Amino acid sequence: MSSDRRTAVAAGVLFLVTEIAAIGGLALYQPLLDAAPGALGPGAATSALRGALCELVLVAAVIGTGTVLFPVIRRRHEGVALGYACLRLLEAVVIAVGVLGVLTLVTLRQEAAGVGGTAGVDRALVALHDWTFLLGPNIALGMNTALLAYVMYRARLVPRFIAVLGLVGGPLICASGVAVMFGAYEQVSVAGSALAVPVFAWEVVLAVRLIAKGFEPARGRADVVGTSQTTHAR
């Protein structure tokens, strides 16, 4: 198996892990986030801790995709490769901040049960999670998706229809994040979910393609987008 084939398989697996971990984390957190301030229902703390574990797996997988794909993208466009890696790292950091907010919320509700005056802090921690959930897996995700899809489209690393999914899905989920930010609708809503479908499809279809067949063979100059500029610069 060639190095590019191993890279493709690793990236595909990591993309699938990001989807599973993100969905699992949200589902496990939800009872805690939906409860009244100060309330900690039966099993909510354990569920939230499991959700935090899923999110930590998500953080590792997000960083992993940026690291694994960096050499492949760099050969096509060095600037985009650096931008993609940085945005993936930013996304992971924002998610990690959200995990810390949820874990702090669990501790607050466990230790301040029946104690007055903590409702404001409680709501602030829920809001912190909500904002990180918006800025990380929506806006930052949309930007890095668009960058990766752009390189894959220009260099024909995958069939064009897969890259187009990313070129459509990335800006859509970014736009959705901005709409949520300005109060157009809730992030977890019919509209928010509908606008997230293309980027979800992009990651799943891309993952399956990379695991099953890897990258497309090089096709002349289409495989070296940006390399001429890099060569001249050196």
Rank of each mutant, 00 (worst) to 15 (best):
V102C: 13
G101Y: 07
L134R: 11
M143T: 04
Q110A: 03
E78S: 08
V99N: 03
A124S: 12
V158W: 08
D130K: 01
R109T: 11
A113D: 09
L108C: 01
Y84N: 06
L103P: 09
G136Q: 01
L89S: 00
T65M: 14
L128N: 02
G136K: 05
G101V: 10
Y153C: 10
G79E: 02
R160Y: 11
G116R: 13
V102H: 12
V115H: 11
A60C: 05
V115T: 08
A52L: 09
R50L: 15
F133N: 09
G98Q: 04
V126I: 14
V80K: 02
V102I: 15
V115E: 13
L87C: 03
G117I: 11
L134T: 07
R74L: 06
T107S: 13
H77I: 07
H129Y: 15
A124C: 03
T145A: 02
V80Q: 02
E91L: 12
L108M: 07
R154N: 08
G101T: 04
A96S: 00
A81F: 03
R76K: 14
G117N: 08
F133R: 06
R75S: 05
A112Q: 10
A127T: 14
G79D: 02
L90M: 13
G64L: 11
G101C: 14
T104G: 14
A96V: 00
A124I: 05
P137T: 02
T65F: 11
L125F: 11
R156P: 04
L128M: 13
A112P: 06
A61C: 06
V72N: 02
E78R: 15
V57H: 01
L147F: 14
F70V: 04
A112I: 01
H129W: 15
L58D: 00
R156A: 13
T104H: 12
T132A: 06
E55G: 05
L90R: 01
L87P: 08
G79I: 06
F70E: 13
F161P: 09
G101F: 11
